[in-house]
Write a protein that binds this DNA or RNA. Structure first.
Length: 893
DNA sequence: TGCGTGACTTGCTCTGAGCCCG
DNA sequence: CGGGCTCAGAGCAAGTCACGCA
């Protein structure tokens, strides 16, 4: 419904016949409803697989962008602390070498046998071996792609173990992880899809890529499977290795060593070790890890041989110990190993910290009345400061799309009216004219813009000074950045999509709304607003939040203040997330076999679980929790409605629904026939608005998934698909070449992941203008080129260059030829840039980079191919992924 | 078993700083 | 040196999932 849609669609082609098969579903983009991006559709790829996405630019207006919006009267300036540089380098290369050496054993397989069976011993061994894996795996895959494809048709399970078989036989499922290298099994469906596509033709990628964005094109060959991942730091090593740290610090604006850095460094060192350890684990097959989660200790042993470890130590020793201790408590890194249970560790009521010191939160400044009078029926109206503040919030949103929404206006009116009172002069919104306030705001904005650089700088510094104390927390003795220490200012709620509460007043938060969580021995932060006090002080070390308040729009919800993404606490859980996804790789074969078998189960719940799991695996759909009526009407897998899926004979399913953030998901994919038939069955006798999976909800689904793999939940498939695809594409498509070409390969892989995850963005307002500008320039250059050619002709014939340009005058044929080549190259580059711009106009690459792509894949790839990590990760990502920086170059997801 | 929290992750948009260009 | 563009970072909305209780 609301979707505005866009027109783009991606075309996806899937071919998956089989489970693994190469399904390709690539969607180009979807549109968001709100955003109205374009939608993408996919088509199946035909031979070539070219799928293309078409883009239509349709309007892209999202209203949101309009400039004014935000209104915040108060400028927020923050300074960012920053930092960091990365230091990966050296080690990396060197490491690489070492790594390369490794033996060719393939993990997968090895693991298989060993792994499955079990644990430790085997596993360790494996671990050590580890690195080898990729080679093996890949090769087979690639080469065999075609064959794979065929196999693809077969059920995943089959493929796993025996490629030869058919679907029917599913292998035994269950918990044991299989490591097979089976080719496809490991692969994410999506990857498989794409792969096919790639192989066969170029799937949509091709089209897109055909002209290589960056030059990379080759991709097809490898088939591109994409994977997406996110990154988060895993805990393992709590902190970053010293190096990193140091580097970070340096960059950080803050005081150099002031503590943070320095302290961090120290502590962190220990971390390194740990991290290494982790790395080791990585290599290890999941299964192994599982088995013995306890392995941790072991790992250390394994700690690689690699030099790195060595370095770390020294300084580390002390800190190291400490850390270890800490970790244990918290279940930190070690955790994963330690927690034999598998990953699940992090969550629970484990201790997350021992000592926690921070200064609370900072509040936005009080409202400063401007005294500008709005008009009601043409006449100026007096408003109290409170009334004026809310009127200003509304006035300032004039240029946004929200103003076109009745719901927004009625909600605003309802809340504002409460402030005005029943008997106020203002009796309806339609007769209100906020122009004077709007104009005043524009002027204020302009003034701010016109301030001199020095003035701006002074303001910024002042703000930084005020905020300095709130920016840091000391967790177990380590200074860590706080993520969002600023209390949200009052404003009008901007829900996404057709949110029922859009426009409601989000009232000002006061100290008495805020609960502080801090160490028992730490001083309680002073309340920044004189005369007021905190709602409550807690000392709960099983949670990571520093403070929270209830969301004024929906009091059932909380707004938390957490540590920043670069903190070790966050890094730890990030790492755990990726480890879990990697573990899934070892189980995926059996899981696919299991659900394939259940596609035709007589037990309807079982059948629905099977089909839902298949969709989550293949399409990277979100779980789809139930939602209340007072939220936007969006769905995920478990909450799909009959109307969201249209069957197209013989075996295609067309999906069309609004997902998270009311982003439109449009995709048509080929599915296995039993799935197709099951969907038809689920739709039977239901109305369009009924639940497709009426016997299912996320808790049942996740409970089932946990039986298949410890800690497995629906969202793990997204991480797995994403990271796997990235790893796979990078491995297959990276060729010798310059850095720019390699970065191009990375971007294409990143884009593929974004498409799989349906990460969209709204088309920038100036997109069309920018494109036409580029077109103009190209046309102009083509004219120039033509002239050069004519001149060259003439010069060769002994004539003088044509007219005009005197500059041409003395050109020799050689010089002209050179010019021609230069101009042609320039035109080519511009064409590529245009294509890239157009291709990415509705695709958001950042989300997957931040949340779904295991950073170790990227770091290891950078090391292997000598691409500076800074070319891929910006400063904040470098800080966030500090835990992944010392990964072995041979790391494979 | 179902439901309502509670805690955290994921995700899009806006903003502002720095960059490039003419 | 002003204006448009890009991109990182901030902001905050909207998901996921675990847990405890009845």
């Amino acid at each position: 419904m609301m979707a505005v849609e866009a027109s783009d669609k991606l075309i996806v082609s899937d071919d998956f016949d089989d489970e693994d098969g190469p399904v390709i579903f690539k969607r180009t983009n979807t549109t968001s409803k709100k955003n109205q991006l374009s939608e993408v559709k996919k088509t199946t790829s035909s031979l070539d697989g070219q799928t293309h996405r078409k883009i239509s630019d349709k309007s892209s207006t999202n209203g949101q962008n309009s400039g004014v919006q935000k209104s915040k009267v108060i400028p927020s300036v923050k300074t960012a602390p920053t930092k960091a540089s990365i230091v990966i380098s050296k080690g990396s290369t060197s490491r690489v070498c070492s790594s390369n050496v490794k033996s060719p054993v393939v993990n997968p397989k090895a693991s298989l046998s060993g792994d499955k069976s079990r644990p430790l011993s085997g596993s360790k061994v494996l671990n050590d071996v580890k690195e080898e894996k990729h080679p093996i795996k890949h090769l087979p895959r690639e080469n065999s792609e075609d064959s794979d494809d065929e196999e693809d048709n077969k059920p995943l399970s089959l493929r796993l173990k025996m490629n030869s078989n058919h679907n029917s036989k599913a292998s035994p499922i269950v918990k044991k992880p299989i490591e097979d290298s089976d080719d496809d099994d490991d692969l994410p469906l999506s990857a498989r899809l794409s792969r096919n596509a790639g192989t066969s033709g170029s799937g949509y990628d091709h089209s897109d890529q055909k002209k290589p964005l960056l030059k990379v094109q080759k991709s097809h060959q490898g088939g591109s499977s994409t994977s997406i991942k996110q990154e988060k730091p895993i805990a393992g090593s709590v902190k970053r290795p010293p190096d990193k740290i140091s580097s970070l610090n340096s960059s950080v604006k803050k005081p150099k060593l002031s503590d943070p850095a320095s302290s961090n460094k120290i502590k962190q060192e220990p971390v390194k070790h740990e991290s290494k350890v982790d790395d080791d684990d990585d290599h290890i097959p999941i299964s192994q890890r599982l088995g013995k989660s306890s392995a941790l200790g072991n790992k250390s042993s394994s700690v690689k041989k690699i030099g790195k470890a060595v370095k770390v130590n020294k300084s580390g020793s002390t800190s190291f110990k400490k850390q270890v201790k800490k970790m244990k408590k918290s279940g930190g890194n070690s955790e994963y190993s330690k927690s034999s249970k598998l990953l699940p560790s992090s969550g629970d009521g484990q201790k997350k910290w021992t000592t926690l010191v921070h200064n609370g939160v900072i509040f936005p400044p009080p409202y400063q009345p401007h005294g500008i009078k709005m008009l009601y029926k043409g006449k100026p109206v007096n408003l109290t400061p409170e009334q004026e503040e809310v009127a200003t919030m509304f006035a300032v949103m004039r240029d946004t799309d929200y103003m076109q929404k009745e719901k927004f206006k009625s909600n605003f009116w309802s809340d504002w009216r409460k402030l005005l009172g029943k008997n106020h002069v203002i009796q309806n919104l339609a007769d209100c004219d906020f122009t004077p306030i709007y104009d005043w705001y524009q002027v204020e904005k302009e003034k701010k813009k016109q301030m001199s650089t020095d003035e701006k700088k002074a303001l910024k510094e002042e703000k930084a000074k005020q905020e300095e104390k709130y920016m840091w927390a000391i967790v177990d003795g380590v200074k860590e950045k706080v993520g969002n220490f600023r209390v949200e200012p009052p404003g009008l709620f901007r829900g996404r999509g057709e949110h029922p509460k859009m426009g409601k007043l989000k009232r000002r938060i006061r100290p008495s709304d805020i609960t502080i969580n801090i160490g028992k021995d730490a001083p309680i932060p002073e309340c920044p607003i004189p005369g007021e006090k905190w709602k409550e002080i807690k000392h709960d070390n099983t949670v990571t939040w520093l403070a929270f308040w209830n969301d004024p729009i929906n009091p059932k919800l909380f707004k938390y203040v957490f540590l920043a993404a670069s903190s070790s606490l966050k890094g730890q859980s990030d790492k755990e997330k990726y480890e879990k996804a990697r573990m899934l790789k070892n189980y995926i074969g059996n899981i696919r076999a299991a659900y394939t078998k259940d596609f035709t189960s007589k037990d309807i719940t079982r059948q629905q679980i099977a089909v839902a799991t298949y969709l989550i695996d293949k399409l990277a759909l979100r779980a789809g929790n139930e939602k209340d009526d007072d939220e936007a009407d969006t769905v995920g897998c478990c909450t799909l409605k009959v109307e969201n899926v249209t069957a197209e004979a013989p075996n295609k399913l067309q999906f069309s629904f609004l997902g998270k953030d009311s982003i439109k998901y449009e995709n048509t994919v080929e599915v296995e026939l039993p799935v197709y038939n099951a969907i038809l069955k689920f739709q039977k006798v239901k109305r369009p608005g009924d639940d497709l999976f009426d016997k299912l909800d996320t808790s049942k689904l996740n409970a089932h998934l946990k039986e298949l793999m410890p800690g497995l939940t629906a969202k793990v498939f997204r991480t797995f698909n994403a990271s796997f695809t990235l790893d796979d594409m990078l491995t297959k498509d990276t060729k010798d070449g310059d850095v720019a070409e390699k970065i191009g390969v990375y971007q294409i892989a990143n884009k593929q992941v974004a498409i799989i995850c349906n990460h969209q963005r709204s088309v920038s307002k100036s997109h069309t203008a920018q494109m036409s500008k580029l077109t103009e320039k190209i046309t102009e250059l083509q004219g120039v080129l033509k002239e050069f050619k004519t001149d060259l002709d003439r010069v060769k014939k002994g004539k003088s260059p044509l007219k005009s340009a005197e500059r041409k005058r003395n050109l020799t044929p050689e010089a002209l030829e050179k010019k021609i080549a230069q101009t042609s190259a320039k035109i080519e580059k511009m064409r590529r840039d245009m294509k890239t711009k157009e291709d990415l106009k509705t695709v958001a690459l950042g989300t997957s980079k931040i949340n779904y792509l295991d950073p170790r894949i990227t770091v290891a790839w950078c090391k292997r191919h000598e691409v500076p990590i800074e070319k891929i990760f910006n400063k904040s990502l470098l800080a966030k992924f500090a835990w992944a920086m010392d990964v072995d170059p041979d790391f494979r997801f």
